[in-house]
């Protein structure tokens, strides 16, 4: 049957339904498990093969040798496209992903983070 205003029923229903909008900063849906967010680095496991540097599509990651068998990772989150290829490339599972995605900063320099032996979680320069 062709008639105008076929959507009316849904409109009336919608007005009594809870809005589908997520009131973002106040409510968060949370990201699913395995979401590709900010990288994490475990210096204990890194052997300095630099496979991650070779495979990174944007050159966002840099592994620097800081001592005997000691490496630190410099990651530029502004360049990172969160594809997780470095995690796949890493043979020793030194790199991993977290589901943290709210990474915006006012200063671009704050996006450059360094993971070193002293502070494995997140030391910001």
């Amino acid at each position: 049957m062709r008639k105008p205003g076929k959507i009316a029923g849904q409109l009336i229903q919608s007005i009594f339904k809870k809005p589908a909008t997520l009131n973002y900063p106040a409510e968060r849906s949370g990201m699913p498990e395995g979401f590709r967010g900010k990288l994490k680095f475990n210096p204990e496991k890194c052997i300095g093969c630099k496979m991650c540097m070779r495979d990174c599509p944007t050159g966002a990651i840099e592994i620097v040798k800081v001592g005997e068998k000691k490496f630190e990772a410099k990651i530029d989150l502004g360049k990172c496209i969160y594809c997780g290829q470095c995690v796949d490339s890493c043979m020793k599972e030194a790199l991993g992903i977290t589901s943290e995605f709210e990474l915006a900063k006012l200063n671009p320099d704050d996006l450059k983070i360094t993971f070193n032996a002293e502070n494995t979680s997140d030391s910001q320069k």
Binding site: E33, G34, F35, R36, I81, Y82, C83, G84, D88
Partner: peptide, 20 residues
């Protein structure tokens, strides 16, 4: 997002198969 880990650019393919 749950299957691939990304909402838009899924990054599912790799040469020789898929990643997840």
């Amino acid at each position: 997002a749950a299957i691939t880990g990304n909402r838009v650019n899924y990054g599912m393919n790799t040469i020789g198969g898929v990643r997840r």
